[in-house]
Design a protein around this nucleic acid. Structure first.
Lengths: 305, 305
DNA sequence: GGGTGTCCATAGGTAAATCCTATCAAAGTG
DNA sequence: CACTTTGATAGGATTTACCTATGGACACCC
C-alpha cells in the first residue's frame, strides 16, 4: 500500500463522477464499463486516503473531504491538460533550427541558406564560427546543424554532403603563376601563399593542396577572405579562394588575377553536419534537399545527389 | 495510439531525468531498473508527441521542445503533490460532524452532546429541527447525524439507540390527576392535553400513549416545551414532558405538579441516526459511545448498552 | 407489501501494461 | 584496440486494468 500511482484518467474519472453525480453515466461518457470506473474512483480514494463520494442507490453525495479536495484535483487535471495542449503540434511550433557555418562560407553562402530555409518553411538561426567551435557547440546542443567542410572525424557527428566547391587561385598582377598553362596544384608553393589564421579549415586545406610544403609567411595572416584578397592585391603572395567567395571587389581588379585550375582542380566538399542523435533529422534532411536546390549551378559547383 | 494515459510516476520520471541529466542515476534514485525508466520516459514522449531528451552515450541534452514543456510538466506534478498533501491526514482535518437534534431534546440535551463531543475530540456542529426536516437534511447530506426519537421508518437510515427517556406528567394544581394513585397511562385523555404543534414527534407520541383518544384542543398549541409548561400552569390541560425537559421553572412551581408514572411508565427511545452510507461511521459510533457515557444516570434514563 | 427497476459493488477471467534481468550497440578513453 | 559508460532492445514473469455477469440495497409502484 505504498504511495499508489495515479494517472490522469483516474482523476478525470473522479472529476466526471463528481460532475454527473452518477457512476453509470460517467462510465458511459468515458466509454468504459461501470465497474472499471468504480475501480478507478476507489483507487483514487485509496491513494488519497479519503472517501470522496458517498454512494447509494438513490442519492449521490460528495463528502465534505471530497468537496475540499475536488478543486485541487481539478487544478492538477487542468495543468495536465495545459501540458498536452502545449505539446500539441498546433501549439508547439518547432523551435528554430540553430545553424552554424564556417566563416569561409559565411556571407557568401548565408543568402542561399536563408532562401532554402524560407522555401522549405523551416525557421533557422545562423551563426558563424570556426569549425572547432561549431563542432563543440553542435555537441553541446547549442547548435542543431553546421555547414562545414567535410569529412569530419567526429564519431557522433553525421554529415550530409551538399556540394563540392572548387578552389580558385588568386595571384597578384605580374606573378609568375599569372600566365602558367596549364595551371595545376602542382605549381603551388606553400611558402608563397598568404593564408587565413589558424583554426580556419581553409588554411589547412590550402596547405595540403600545395605540392611544395614549406611554411607560409607567419607575418601576414588574414582573418577573413576579404582581407586576404587585399593582401594578395598588395603583392604579398597568392592564395586559394573557394568558388563562392571568388568575387573580386571592383577596386582590386587591376591588381589581381583570378585563375581557374586547368587540371586536377582542387576543391572542398561542403556538407551539413548534425549530431547523430538529433531527434528531428527529417527537418535537417529537408533543409539539405532545399539547399541543394538553391545552390547556384554556376561557378562549377558540383551538387551531390 | 489514442490519447495515451500518463501517470504521475511517469511525469516524475521525466522530471528526475531532466534534473539529473542521466537515465541510470534517475532510475536508481526512483528505485526502478533503467529499462523501466526508459520506457516511462518514452511513454511520456509518445503521449506528448514530442521528443524531450536527446540521448547519447556521452552527452545528455534536453531538446528545445523539452525545455519549453518541462515547466508545464513540473507544474502538473506540483499540483498533484498539492493534492496529495492536502489529502494527507496531517493537513486534512476531518470536517465537523454536522449533527441535528429534535427541539424536545434541544436545549436539554445539547450540553451533554457538546461534552461528549469535546471528550471524544470530535468537532461537531449542532442544529435543531423537527424530525421531518432532520431526516430530509440527513438524506441530502446537509447533516451527518441526527438525534431523534427512534425507531425511524426510513430504509436508508441507520439508528444507534442511546437511551430510553421516560415521560413525566405535568398537571395543573388542583387537577384530578394530581392525586390519582397509582398513575398509569390508562388515565390519560387526549382531549384534555395541551401539546406541541404538528411535526413534533412528542405530540404524536403523547397522543398515542393516551387511552382515550379524542382530539386535543386545537386552540392551544405550543412550539416549545417551555411554553407548554406555561400553558399547563395556566390550567389549560396537562401534558407529557420528557424526563430531561422536566425541570419546572421556579415561577411555575406553585401552579403545576410533576408526576412520575407508577406503572407502565411511557417513554421514548432516543437514538443517533445516520445514513447507512455515511463513510466514517466510526466517528459516529465513538460519538455514540461518548454520549452514553455522558448521559446523566438520574431521571431514570435507561442507557442502552 | 411483494414485484420491479435503478444503482453501485463484487467476482472471475482475460487482455494489456509494467517491471525485471540479460544483452546489445554506440561512442569516448587510455 | 580493448575497456568503460550509457541508453535501447529482447524476452519472460508479474501486476494491473478491463470486461461481463451477478449480487445486494433501496426506492417506487401498483
Amino acid at each position: 500500500m505504498d504511495t499508489l500511482d495515479l494517472s490522469f484518467r483516474d482523476l478525470k474519472a473522479v472529476d466526471l463522477v463528481a460532475r454527473l453525480q452518477h457512476f453509470g453515466r460517467a462510465a458511459e461518457s468515458l466509454g468504459i464499463a461501470q465497474p472499471s470506473l468504480s475501480a478507478q474512483v476507489s483507487k483514487v480514494e485509496r491513494a488519497l486516503g479519503v472517501t470522496l463520494f458517498e454512494r447509494s442507490t438513490r442519492r449521490f453525495l460528495i463528502t465534505a473531504d471530497g468537496a475540499r479536495l475536488l478543486p485541487l484535483l481539478r487544478a492538477a487535471l487542468d495543468h495536465h491538460h495545459n501540458l498536452l495542449a502545449a505539446a500539441h503540434p498546433k501549439t508547439l511550433r518547432p523551435a528554430p533550427l540553430q545553424i552554424g557555418l564556417i566563416p569561409t562560407l559565411g556571407a557568401y553562402f548565408a543568402p542561399i541558406l536563408l532562401n532554402a530555409a524560407g522555401a522549405s518553411r523551416i525557421d533557422i538561426t545562423i551563426s558563424e564560427e570556426p569549425t572547432a567551435i561549431l563542432l563543440s557547440k553542435l555537441q553541446d546542443g547549442e547548435l542543431d546543424a553546421a555547414l562545414l567542410s567535410i569529412p569530419i572525424r567526429h564519431e557522433s557527428i553525421a554529415s550530409i554532403p551538399l556540394f563540392d566547391e572548387p578552389f580558385r587561385l588568386l595571384v597578384p598582377q605580374g606573378h609568375d603563376l599569372m600566365r602558367l598553362r596549364p595551371l595545376s596544384p602542382a605549381a603551388l608553393d606553400a611558402s608563397h601563399m598568404v593564408l587565413l589564421s589558424e583554426g580556419h579549415c581553409l588554411r589547412d586545406q590550402a596547405l595540403s593542396i600545395c605540392s611544395r610544403r614549406g611554411s607560409p609567411s607567419p607575418r601576414l595572416v588574414a582573418t577573413s577572405l576579404e582581407t586576404l584578397k587585399y593582401l594578395v592585391a598588395a603583392g604579398e603572395g597568392y592564395t586559394l579562394l573557394p568558388a563562392l567567395a571568388s568575387h573580386i571587389p571592383r577596386g582590386l581588379r587591376e591588381r589581381v588575377e583570378l585563375r581557374h585550375f586547368d587540371a586536377r582542380c582542387p576543391y572542398r566538399r561542403i556538407g551539413i553536419c548534425t549530431r547523430k542523435t538529433l531527434p528531428d533529422r527529417a527537418r535537417v534532411n529537408s533543409l539539405a534537399a532545399a539547399l541543394r536546390k538553391h545552390t547556384p549551378k554556376d561557378q562549377d559547383l558540383r551538387i551531390i545527389a
